[in-house]
Design a protein around this nucleic acid. Structure first.
Lengths: 197, 197
DNA sequence: AAAGTGTTAAATGTATACATTTTTAATATT
DNA sequence: AATATTAAAAATGTATACATTTAACACTTT
């Protein structure tokens, strides 16, 4: 197995794990020394991290609640579009896959639950079958990760129930209900997490 | 007035004006010589142009009809969300501004019409009041420009009528109609332009 | 003390040299 | 002729030097 992490992955993980204080400027020179590379690849990585809302103006991005609401508006727009597509396109096997992720989330530890929940939402988004929208969704990965970590660690109630109900609505081919359910599901994630931050 | 164009603007305009053949590789070295700068700023510019779907894998991006449909799915998702917001938020002055753009598009030459139509759609998107979604929409600027240029030059019928009806639906606070109208409006733009390409 | 001024330090922007990878195309092999 | 092989060339990736801009801070002046 290839364990080698790219520079991008290393910096990203360090940011997500809180290596850098939010008041600490991420200068190219300092990062270059830290990761033992030159400024050139560091610049590329910083651009990529800005792209996914992890870095802004040379600092770790600490979005305001308003910013998080806006990022979630974007997420909700994409995922609600996704479930409407899923209602039209998903076959029995797709639904089985979704239910499998719910089961994994129920049975595993926090780390597995986190991974399974991510797979659940990613599977929904893939229903759109649109690489441009998928990539736009992926830009939110770090934000979604930070929220999902809180939601799992602080054990937000009803979470897996809501996943179940969404799958059921898709199976029933009830697009309007499915849409409503995913919207309120994500809004609850948002409000729950903002409460803890 | 500051007439100085940035390197990014120069390269972008040259691509939009057809300076580069689609079979022509945009190598950093060649571009650096062409624009009399070093490879470093050229790399930045190429990244930016990839971001907005004008360059891909070192060539001018020539999307397939399928790609264009997907890009427009993204556009439609954002703009239909925008009109729903506009129905809730726009006041008389905003509607006046929209109608003003329709008038400008009617009276001016192609170049003015193009600019006015862009302002119309940008005004709608700003109703979302979400910088992340606005930026996502702006990524589509070049694609939208290419389509809008065809639509105006080839004089797609009904275009300004459709704009009128959208404004009317917003004024009537009829979100569902407004949404339907913008969706079909954009789908017509898409199909009309694909026919000519 | 607050507000300006100038000097220094440190950061980013740009150019360029060098390392590595990829592409090209000429030649050999089946 | 099509397929490998491989040497040369050309591209990108990375490091680094230099230029320019921005930030920090000591010192005046009010």
């Amino acid at each position: 197995m290839n364990q080698e992490r790219t520079l991008y992955e290393k910096v990203r993980e360090d940011i997500l794990n809180g290596t850098f204080d939010k008041k600490e400027k991420l200068t190219e020179i300092k990062l270059a020394k830290m990761y033992d590379v030159s400024r050139t690849p560091i610049r590329e990585v910083l651009k990529q991290l800005e792209f996914e809302y992890l870095v802004k103006d040379g600092y770790v991005y600490t979005p305001s609640p308003e910013d998080y609401r806006n990022l979630f508006e974007m997420r909700i727009l994409i995922e609600s579009h996704a479930v409407e597509k899923a209602v039209l396109l998903f076959v029995e096997e797709d639904l089985k896959e979704l239910r499998n992720y719910i089961k994994q989330a129920k049975d595993g530890d926090d780390s597995l639950t986190l991974a399974a929940n991510k797979k659940f939402h990613d599977k929904l988004v893939r229903a759109i079958r649109n690489p441009f929208l998928s990539e736009t969704y992926d830009r939110l990965n770090s934000t979604i990760y930070l929220f999902s970590r809180t939601v799992v660690q602080k054990q937000r109630p009803e979470l897996l129930d809501e996943h179940e109900k969404i799958v059921q609505a898709i199976e029933d081919r009830d697009g309007e209900t499915a849409r409503q359910l995913i919207v309120t599901h994500l809004q609850k994630d948002l409000e729950f997490t903002l409460y803890y931050m």
